[in-house]
Protein backbone atom coordinates (compact mmCIF):
# COMPACT_ATOMS: atom_id res chain seq x y z
CA UNK A 1 0.00 0.00 0.00
CA UNK A 2 1.87 3.07 1.10
CA UNK A 3 5.44 2.46 0.19
CA UNK A 4 7.04 4.84 2.59
CA UNK A 5 5.87 3.36 5.84
CA UNK A 6 6.79 -0.12 4.77
CA UNK A 7 9.39 -0.47 7.44
CA UNK A 8 7.12 0.69 10.19
CA UNK A 9 4.50 -1.60 8.88
CA UNK A 10 6.96 -4.44 8.95
CA UNK A 11 7.51 -3.90 12.64
CA UNK A 12 3.82 -3.87 13.28
CA UNK A 13 3.54 -7.02 11.29
CA UNK A 14 6.17 -8.60 13.37
CA UNK A 15 4.15 -8.00 16.48
CA UNK A 16 1.06 -9.20 14.78
CA UNK A 17 2.87 -12.20 13.51
CA UNK A 18 4.20 -13.11 16.89
CA UNK A 19 0.83 -12.63 18.45
CA UNK A 20 -0.63 -14.72 15.69
CA UNK A 21 1.92 -17.37 16.26
CA UNK A 22 1.11 -17.64 19.91
CA UNK A 23 -2.58 -17.94 19.08
CA UNK A 24 -1.85 -20.61 16.54
CA UNK A 25 0.39 -22.58 18.80
CA UNK A 26 -2.27 -22.52 21.46
CA UNK A 27 -4.72 -23.75 18.90
CA UNK A 28 -2.38 -26.50 17.84
CA UNK A 29 -1.76 -27.60 21.37
CA UNK A 30 -5.43 -27.81 21.88
CA UNK A 31 -5.76 -29.84 18.68
CA UNK A 32 -3.43 -32.48 19.95
CA UNK A 33 -5.85 -33.49 22.56
CA UNK A 34 -8.85 -32.78 20.41
CA UNK A 35 -10.31 -34.64 17.46
CA UNK A 36 -8.10 -34.09 14.39
CA UNK A 37 -11.00 -33.01 12.17
CA UNK A 38 -11.26 -29.76 14.05
CA UNK A 39 -7.90 -28.64 12.72
CA UNK A 40 -8.92 -29.23 9.11
CA UNK A 41 -10.37 -25.77 8.90
CA UNK A 42 -7.03 -24.06 9.15
CA UNK A 43 -5.31 -26.35 6.67
CA UNK A 44 -5.07 -25.19 3.08
CA UNK A 45 -3.11 -28.13 1.80
CA UNK A 46 -3.07 -31.58 3.20
CA UNK A 47 -0.41 -33.85 1.73
CA UNK A 48 -0.20 -37.53 2.58
CA UNK A 49 2.45 -40.06 1.56
CA UNK A 50 3.48 -38.14 -1.51
CA UNK A 51 6.02 -39.93 -3.68
CA UNK A 52 7.43 -38.45 -6.86
CA UNK A 53 9.73 -40.08 -9.39
CA UNK A 54 11.57 -38.48 -12.30
CA UNK A 55 12.22 -41.55 -14.39
CA UNK A 56 14.28 -43.67 -12.03
CA UNK A 57 15.09 -40.83 -9.64
CA UNK A 58 13.06 -40.85 -6.46
CA UNK A 59 12.68 -37.10 -5.89
CA UNK A 60 10.12 -37.02 -3.07
CA UNK A 61 9.81 -39.79 -0.51
CA UNK A 62 6.67 -40.29 1.56
CA UNK A 63 6.12 -36.63 2.23
CA UNK A 64 3.20 -35.84 4.53
CA UNK A 65 2.56 -32.27 5.53
CA UNK A 66 -0.34 -29.95 6.33
CA UNK A 67 -0.02 -26.34 5.28
CA UNK A 68 -1.85 -23.68 7.28
CA UNK A 69 -4.24 -21.14 5.84
CA UNK A 70 -3.23 -17.46 5.97
CA UNK A 71 0.26 -18.24 7.12
CA UNK A 72 3.68 -18.35 5.57
CA UNK A 73 5.23 -21.77 5.30
CA UNK A 74 8.91 -21.87 4.41
CA UNK A 75 10.50 -24.85 2.69
CA UNK A 76 14.22 -25.09 3.34
CA UNK A 77 16.97 -27.56 2.57
CA UNK A 78 20.10 -27.93 0.45
CA UNK A 79 19.95 -27.80 -3.36
CA UNK A 80 18.37 -30.83 -4.89
CA UNK A 81 16.56 -31.79 -1.68
CA UNK A 82 13.17 -31.72 -3.40
CA UNK A 83 11.75 -28.51 -1.92
CA UNK A 84 11.15 -26.86 -5.30
CA UNK A 85 9.82 -30.10 -6.70
CA UNK A 86 7.43 -30.28 -3.80
CA UNK A 87 6.33 -26.69 -4.35
CA UNK A 88 5.50 -27.47 -7.97
CA UNK A 89 3.30 -30.38 -6.99
CA UNK A 90 1.02 -27.93 -5.19
CA UNK A 91 -0.22 -26.34 -8.41
CA UNK A 92 0.73 -29.07 -10.87
CA UNK A 93 3.42 -27.04 -12.59
CA UNK A 94 5.24 -30.33 -13.08
CA UNK A 95 2.54 -31.58 -15.46
CA UNK A 96 4.75 -30.44 -18.32
CA UNK A 97 7.81 -32.36 -17.27
CA UNK A 98 8.28 -35.68 -18.91
CA UNK A 99 8.74 -39.02 -17.24
CA UNK A 100 7.25 -37.88 -13.96
CA UNK A 101 5.24 -40.19 -11.70
CA UNK A 102 3.28 -39.03 -8.68
CA UNK A 103 1.71 -41.18 -5.97
CA UNK A 104 -0.06 -40.27 -2.76
CA UNK A 105 -2.51 -37.59 -1.91
CA UNK A 106 -2.35 -33.82 -2.23
CA UNK A 107 -5.52 -32.05 -1.14
CA UNK A 108 -6.45 -28.42 -1.47
CA UNK A 109 -9.34 -27.60 0.85
CA UNK A 110 -10.08 -31.28 1.04
CA UNK A 111 -10.14 -31.70 -2.73
CA UNK A 112 -7.68 -34.10 -4.34
CA UNK A 113 -5.64 -32.05 -6.84
CA UNK A 114 -4.31 -35.00 -8.81
CA UNK A 115 -7.82 -36.25 -9.25
CA UNK A 116 -9.37 -36.39 -12.71
CA UNK A 117 -12.10 -34.07 -11.52
CA UNK A 118 -9.57 -31.33 -10.80
CA UNK A 119 -8.88 -29.09 -13.73
CA UNK A 120 -5.20 -28.06 -13.58
CA UNK A 121 -6.04 -24.73 -15.22
CA UNK A 122 -8.54 -23.86 -12.48
CA UNK A 123 -6.11 -25.14 -9.87
CA UNK A 124 -3.41 -22.75 -11.07
CA UNK A 125 -5.90 -19.91 -10.98
CA UNK A 126 -6.44 -20.66 -7.31
CA UNK A 127 -2.80 -21.43 -6.56
CA UNK A 128 -0.59 -18.77 -8.13
CA UNK A 129 3.16 -18.91 -8.46
CA UNK A 130 6.07 -16.47 -8.26
CA UNK A 131 9.35 -17.63 -9.72
CA UNK A 132 13.00 -17.38 -8.81
CA UNK A 133 13.83 -15.08 -11.70
CA UNK A 134 11.37 -12.24 -12.12
CA UNK A 135 9.64 -13.20 -15.35
CA UNK A 136 7.46 -10.40 -16.65
CA UNK A 137 6.12 -10.98 -20.14
CA UNK A 138 7.58 -8.81 -22.90
CA UNK A 139 4.51 -6.58 -22.68
CA UNK A 140 3.64 -3.32 -21.00
CA UNK A 141 3.34 -3.11 -17.21
CA UNK A 142 -0.41 -2.76 -17.57
CA UNK A 143 -0.74 -5.72 -19.90
CA UNK A 144 1.32 -7.85 -17.55
CA UNK A 145 -1.02 -7.30 -14.65
CA UNK A 146 -4.12 -7.45 -16.83
CA UNK A 147 -2.95 -10.70 -18.41
CA UNK A 148 -4.61 -13.05 -15.94
CA UNK A 149 -7.98 -11.28 -15.84
CA UNK A 150 -7.97 -11.12 -19.63
CA UNK A 151 -7.39 -14.81 -20.16
CA UNK A 152 -10.27 -15.29 -17.77
CA UNK A 153 -12.51 -13.27 -20.04
CA UNK A 154 -12.46 -9.83 -18.49
CA UNK A 155 -12.09 -7.27 -21.25
CA UNK A 156 -13.92 -4.22 -19.95
CA UNK A 157 -11.44 -1.42 -19.60
CA UNK A 158 -12.84 0.10 -16.42
CA UNK A 159 -12.87 -3.29 -14.76
CA UNK A 160 -9.30 -4.01 -15.82
CA UNK A 161 -8.11 -0.57 -14.73
CA UNK A 162 -9.50 -1.21 -11.31
CA UNK A 163 -7.88 -4.63 -11.03
CA UNK A 164 -4.51 -3.33 -12.20
CA UNK A 165 -4.55 -0.46 -9.74
CA UNK A 166 -5.61 -2.68 -6.89
CA UNK A 167 -2.96 -5.31 -7.60
CA UNK A 168 -0.16 -2.80 -8.01
CA UNK A 169 -1.27 -1.03 -4.84
CA UNK A 170 -1.29 -4.29 -2.98
CA UNK A 171 2.37 -4.89 -3.83
CA UNK A 172 3.19 -1.26 -3.08
CA UNK A 173 4.36 -0.04 -6.47
CA UNK A 174 1.26 1.72 -7.74
CA UNK A 175 2.69 5.19 -7.09
CA UNK A 176 5.89 4.37 -8.98
CA UNK A 177 4.05 2.71 -11.82
CA UNK A 178 0.92 4.71 -12.41
CA UNK A 179 2.57 7.09 -14.87
CA UNK A 180 4.38 4.44 -16.84
CA UNK A 181 1.79 1.71 -17.18
CA UNK A 182 2.17 1.69 -20.94
CA UNK A 183 5.95 1.21 -20.78
CA UNK A 184 7.57 -2.18 -21.23
CA UNK A 185 7.85 -4.22 -18.07
CA UNK A 186 11.32 -5.31 -19.16
CA UNK A 187 12.63 -1.82 -18.38
CA UNK A 188 11.99 -2.18 -14.64
CA UNK A 189 14.61 -3.05 -12.04
CA UNK A 190 14.78 -6.61 -10.77
CA UNK A 191 13.00 -5.79 -7.52
CA UNK A 192 10.26 -3.90 -9.34
CA UNK A 193 9.88 -6.74 -11.82
CA UNK A 194 9.47 -9.26 -9.05
CA UNK A 195 6.81 -7.17 -7.36
CA UNK A 196 5.12 -6.72 -10.69
CA UNK A 197 5.09 -10.49 -11.06
CA UNK A 198 3.50 -10.81 -7.64
CA UNK A 199 0.93 -8.20 -8.65
CA UNK A 200 0.28 -10.18 -11.81
CA UNK A 201 -0.44 -13.20 -9.64
CA UNK A 202 -2.65 -11.22 -7.25
CA UNK A 203 -4.69 -9.79 -10.12
CA UNK A 204 -6.53 -13.08 -10.48
CA UNK A 205 -7.25 -13.25 -6.73
CA UNK A 206 -5.69 -16.60 -5.94
CA UNK A 207 -6.06 -18.30 -2.58
CA UNK A 208 -2.48 -19.45 -2.36
CA UNK A 209 0.77 -17.94 -3.60
CA UNK A 210 3.70 -20.25 -4.12
CA UNK A 211 7.06 -18.49 -4.15
CA UNK A 212 10.09 -20.28 -5.53
CA UNK A 213 13.12 -18.48 -4.09
CA UNK A 214 11.57 -15.15 -5.03
CA UNK A 215 14.44 -13.04 -3.74
CA UNK A 216 17.48 -15.06 -4.75
CA UNK A 217 18.02 -12.88 -7.84
CA UNK A 218 17.51 -9.60 -5.96
CA UNK A 219 19.61 -7.12 -3.98
CA UNK A 220 19.18 -6.85 -0.19
CA UNK A 221 16.86 -3.83 -0.27
CA UNK A 222 14.53 -5.38 -2.84
CA UNK A 223 14.68 -8.59 -0.84
CA UNK A 224 13.55 -6.79 2.26
CA UNK A 225 10.67 -5.19 0.43
CA UNK A 226 9.52 -8.54 -0.92
CA UNK A 227 9.70 -10.02 2.57
CA UNK A 228 7.61 -7.19 3.99
CA UNK A 229 5.18 -7.69 1.20
CA UNK A 230 4.91 -11.41 1.90
CA UNK A 231 4.10 -10.72 5.53
CA UNK A 232 1.48 -8.21 4.50
CA UNK A 233 -0.03 -10.60 1.97
CA UNK A 234 -0.44 -13.51 4.34
CA UNK A 235 -3.40 -11.77 5.90
CA UNK A 236 -5.34 -12.52 2.77
CA UNK A 237 -3.44 -15.34 1.17
CA UNK A 238 -1.76 -18.56 2.10
CA UNK A 239 1.90 -18.40 1.19
CA UNK A 240 4.37 -21.21 0.64
CA UNK A 241 7.91 -20.06 0.04
CA UNK A 242 11.02 -21.97 -0.96
CA UNK A 243 14.17 -20.28 0.26
CA UNK A 244 17.86 -20.87 0.57
CA UNK A 245 18.15 -18.07 3.02
CA UNK A 246 17.90 -19.26 6.61
CA UNK A 247 17.44 -15.75 7.99
CA UNK A 248 14.64 -15.17 5.55
CA UNK A 249 12.82 -18.29 6.64
CA UNK A 250 13.36 -17.30 10.23
CA UNK A 251 12.22 -13.72 9.68
CA UNK A 252 9.02 -14.23 7.79
CA UNK A 253 7.64 -17.72 8.12
CA UNK A 254 5.20 -19.14 10.63
CA UNK A 255 6.13 -22.71 9.94
CA UNK A 256 9.21 -24.24 8.43
CA UNK A 257 9.69 -27.56 6.68
CA UNK A 258 13.17 -28.97 6.27
CA UNK A 259 13.77 -31.26 3.29
CA UNK A 260 16.76 -33.47 2.71
CA UNK A 261 17.30 -35.90 -0.18
CA UNK A 262 13.61 -35.95 -0.99
CA UNK A 263 12.45 -36.53 2.56
CA UNK A 264 10.64 -34.18 4.88
CA UNK A 265 12.99 -34.35 7.87
CA UNK A 266 11.31 -31.95 10.21
CA UNK A 267 8.28 -29.68 10.14
CA UNK A 268 7.00 -27.37 12.78
CA UNK A 269 6.73 -23.85 14.06
CA UNK A 270 9.58 -21.75 12.72
CA UNK A 271 10.67 -20.73 16.20
CA UNK A 272 10.88 -24.38 17.24
CA UNK A 273 12.80 -25.42 14.17
CA UNK A 274 15.33 -22.66 14.57
CA UNK A 275 15.64 -22.59 18.34
CA UNK A 276 15.46 -26.22 19.25
CA UNK A 277 15.35 -28.53 16.27
CA UNK A 278 14.51 -32.07 17.15
CA UNK A 279 16.47 -33.67 14.36
CA UNK A 280 20.26 -33.65 14.25
CA UNK A 281 20.34 -33.07 10.50
CA UNK A 282 18.07 -30.06 10.79
CA UNK A 283 20.32 -28.60 13.38
CA UNK A 284 23.40 -29.18 11.27
CA UNK A 285 21.76 -27.56 8.31
CA UNK A 286 20.43 -24.44 10.00
CA UNK A 287 23.64 -23.87 11.83
CA UNK A 288 25.35 -23.96 8.48
CA UNK A 289 27.40 -27.09 8.90
CA UNK A 290 26.40 -28.36 5.46
CA UNK A 291 24.24 -27.37 2.54
Amino acid sequence: MRVNDNTIRADEDLYEMQADRIDKSLEKDADHTDDSTASRVSEKFSVKDLNLHYGTFHALKDVSIDIDTNAITALIGPSGCGKSTFLKTLNRMNDFEEGIKIEGSVQLDGQEIYDRAMNPIELRQRVGMVFQQPNPFPKTIYDNVAYGPRIRGIHKKSELDEIVEKALTEVGIWDEMKDRLKKSALGLSGGQQQRLCIARTLAVSPEVILMDEPTSALDPISTMKIEDLAMELKKKYTIVIVTHNMQQANRISDKTAFFLLGELIEYGKTSDIFLNPKNKKTEEYITGRFG
Binding site: R150, I151, R152, G153, I154, H155
Partner: peptide
Protein backbone atom coordinates in the same frame (compact mmCIF):
# COMPACT_ATOMS: atom_id res chain seq x y z
CA UNK B 1 -10.18 -12.61 -28.69
CA UNK B 2 -8.56 -15.46 -26.92
CA UNK B 3 -10.00 -15.47 -23.50
CA UNK B 4 -12.02 -18.15 -21.96
CA UNK B 5 -15.68 -17.62 -22.53
CA UNK B 6 -15.08 -14.07 -23.61
CA UNK B 7 -18.03 -14.07 -25.95
CA UNK B 8 -20.55 -13.56 -23.29
CA UNK B 9 -19.55 -13.74 -19.69
Amino acid sequence: DTAAGAVNR
